[in-house]
Amino acid sequence: MNSLILSAATRFLAPLMLAYSLFILLRGHNEPGGGFIGGLVAATAFALYAKAEDTGAVRRAMRIAPELLSMLGLGAAVMAGVWGWWEGDAFLESVWPFLVVEDGKKEGLPVGSALLFDVGVYMVVVGAVTALFLALEDDASRSPDDEDADQSGER
């Protein structure tokens, strides 16, 4: 798709959406948001970028293969679980290394294994959705000649 307006707008919109998705991810524990929503926003940003430019541009901008990103996300979630196992006594038990609770008041930074887990969720959603979308887009936007050649080869 070669729309000048879309292309120009996306140049501003996509980074903004990405930044916003991170914001949503991080505030998710207390306000509306979280890994799922953040991941979907980021995936939408990449989809938009792919529509405005092309899939190669998205792949270059991501720097990492989206399917790899989703696997890393799964790994991060598992790590968060193991962390809880190591420090606490159950797989996925949440751990808050920078948080001290005194008299019901919490002091310190509310960052812990739950956040790592949510980041993992975010990465999985971004990675899986983007990978799928890019592959589909790549495939669908090939010229009909390729398509025919492919098909005759397959039959």
Binding site: G28, H29, N30, E31, P32, G33, G34, G35, F36, S70, M71, G73, L74, A77, V78, A80, G81, F91, L92, S94, W96, L99, K106, P110, A114, L115, F117, D118, G120, V121, V124, V125, G127, A128, V129
Partner: peptide
């Protein structure tokens, strides 16, 4: 769980194992 968004806390803390299975399905 030190979170004020109850839905998100359920997802990433109380029922995190479910969520882990679910993101695995997505991946």
């Amino acid at each position: 769980a030190f979170g004020r968004n109850i839905v998100n806390v359920i997802l990433v803390d109380f029922r995190a194992l479910d969520t882990m299975g679910e993101i695995a399905v997505v991946a």
